[in-house]
């Protein structure tokens, strides 16, 4: 009758030696070589500590209904026309003030509670002798992110476009993109830039200067920009027709980079460390078994058996 191996179990064997023996020293060395090199390997192969990570989120953007418009006119008329939603700015303009008709609509296409795009239309009435050659337009937005850090920011879309031929309409269709100079933090409230882009309460001309507005805005680490590579100028304005700015500004899903928190960093480091450690553990287990089995270091081998008297015999 043929015999088959139906069951097996390993037999544990202990090796005994003094604490100051060679064997103890070897074990200490082996332990050090097992646990420290994986750390070095993981660290030297880069990316051990996760310093920057990214996630996707569609921001909650609302148009704040603040507009600052400068329309640059052709040489036959004097300079430019301007208008804004700020009373002080309008007061400063004097005769250059020209009140347009503005109509805007924010649309939530997928009904998820976050607006997806802004339809902005501005009709600037012009005299038949006035010709618009260039446009500078600032629209302000409130911009919020929620998923990691709560970012609350007031940002702007700056549109500047000009053309050598007098236009009748400017068509812009672009994205409001987030620009980060540094990663966001992973939690908490970030309201550093929850300050208005244009100080609408100020009576001073300095606060409405475009260079000053843009300079102050660019100081920020997190900004939004209007990304439209090709604004379209339509020429051929009728004498009594207004100049029309037709803008569609979309609020796309953004990839936001952030600084991971402590536990996220530790988690990723742990994953890397342990996966290398497993190999070292296996290798040094083999080495230790070899060393003790072949008595490279002197120890007293003991086979652990359930019988207590044998143990006692060796203990003595």
């Amino acid at each position: 009758m043929a015999l088959y191996e139906l069951f097996s179990h390993p037999v544990e064997r202990s090796y005994r030696a003094g604490l100051c023996s060679k064997a103890a020293l070897f074990l200490l060395l082996a332990a050090a070589l097992t646990y420290i090199p994986p750390l070095l390997v993981a660290f030297r192969s880069h990316g051990f500590w996760l310093k920057r990570s990214s996630y996707e989120e569609q921001p909650t953007v609302r148009f704040q209904h603040q507009v600052l418009l400068v329309a640059l006119l052709g040489p036959e008329s004097d300079g430019f026309l301007a208008w804004s939603t700020f009373p002080a700015f309008n007061r400063l303009q004097g005769d250059r003030l020209r009140v347009p008709l503005v109509s805007t609509r924010e649309e939530d296409r997928n009904q998820d509670g976050k607006t997806d795009m802004l339809h902005f239309k501005l009709e600037l009435p012009l005299q038949s002798t006035e010709h618009v050659l260039g446009v500078q337009l600032i629209l302000t937005f409130s911009y919020r992110l929620h998923r990691m850090a709560t970012l609350v920011m007031q940002s702007m879309a700056f549109l500047q476009s000009s053309f050598p031929v007098p236009g009748s309409q400017l068509y812009v269709n672009g994205d409001l993109r987030l620009q980060q100079k540094q990663p966001l933090s992973c939690g908490g409230l970030d309201a550093r830039y929850n300050i208005s882009v244009i100080n609408g309460t100020s009576p001073f001309a300095y606060d409405y200067d475009l260079t000053h507005i843009v300079a102050a805005y660019q100081e920020r680490n997190v900004t939004t920009v209007l990304n439209d590579p090709n604004p379209i100028w339509l020429v051929g304005r009728a004498a009594d027709a207004p100049f029309v700015i037709n803008a569609i500004i979309r609020y796309p899903v953004e990839v936001i980079s952030y600084q991971p928190g402590f536990w996220e960093m530790v988690k990723f480091a742990w994953v890397q460390y342990v996966s290398i450690l497993l190999i070292f553990l296996w290798v040094f287990e083999r080495i230790k078994i070899f060393v003790f089995q072949n008595q490279v270091v002197t120890t007293i081998p003991v086979t652990v058996t359930p019988r207590g008297d044998l143990c006692k015999e060796h203990l003595s």
């Binding site: 003030l97 020209r98 009140v99 008709l101 009709e123 009435p125």
Partner: peptide, 30 residues
């Protein structure tokens, strides 16, 4: 009220623009 070329409130007459649903609007005169 519809903004016009003349911009003068006192000279302005009868130029109106309809309120369309969903569109926030602003216009004015001097």
């Amino acid at each position: 009220l519809h903004s016009t070329t003349e911009q003068d409130c006192l000279a302005l007459e009868g130029v109106r623009t309809p309120v369309l649903f969903g569109y926030t609007m602003q216009s004015g005169c001097k």
